[in-house]
Computed example of a mutant assay.
Amino acid sequence: MMLTRRHALQVGGASIALLALHSRVFAASDVVDIVMAGRPDGSHVWFDPIGVHIQPGQTVRWTNNDPSNAHTSTAYHPSILDRPRRIPNGARPWDSGYLMPGESFEVKLTVTGVYDYYCQPHEQAGMVGRIVVGHPPDRDYPATVRAGLAPLPAAALAYMPTISDILASTR
């Protein structure tokens, strides 16, 4: 079979298009989506999923799909509202600010460990989440509490998933 110039260009073009598509699919897999949700009457709010396991360097994107409420994604860290540190040493804390319905916020997590976060206006209602990055020790994570920092509300502690449950759900 003789390869014509037209055939070579068609094959080459198809290969480039396939490679571009593959690159977009790979890039999309580097982003993990977490939805901010709530009941229409505002009686219950949550992150979905509440616990995720990712690899270092992946990006987490929170999107507010709750038509009734503004939400935040805020790391537990002393530099943000004097909260206890519940992210790894060396990791950068984040605060999305208030996200209105339909808005998103992203953070790239590079330090291995456990990251706990909450929604500022709904922490008392238990709107919290946990991200496990890489392979930290397979044990539950003690909060680092310094004198003078506000403790976590009982509802936040009650809803926080365990590390072992998060790791088991991704195996």
Rank of each mutant, 00 (worst) to 15 (best):
M1I: 11
M2V: 12
R6M: 10
V11K: 11
V11F: 08
G12Q: 02
G13I: 04
A14T: 12
L18V: 13
L18Y: 03
L21Q: 14
H22M: 15
S29Y: 03
D30N: 15
V31M: 03
V32D: 02
V32Y: 10
V35T: 15
G42F: 09
S43N: 05
H44D: 11
F47L: 08
D48P: 02
P49D: 11
V52T: 04
I54R: 05
G57V: 00
G57A: 01
Q58N: 06
W62T: 09
N64I: 07
N65V: 11
N65D: 14
S68N: 10
H71K: 02
H71T: 10
S73M: 15
A75Q: 00
S79A: 15
I80H: 03
I80Q: 02
L81I: 09
R83Y: 12
P84W: 01
R92W: 06
P93W: 00
P93L: 03
D95W: 05
S96N: 02
G97W: 04
L99C: 01
E103G: 01
V107I: 06
K108R: 14
K108C: 09
L109D: 09
V111S: 07
G113N: 05
Y115V: 13
Y117M: 12
Q124T: 12
Q124K: 13
Q124H: 12
A125N: 08
M127P: 04
P137G: 06
D138S: 10
R139T: 12
P142Y: 05
T144P: 03
T144G: 07
V145S: 05
L149F: 10
P151M: 07
P151W: 11
P153R: 15
A156R: 01
L157Q: 14
S164K: 13
T170V: 09
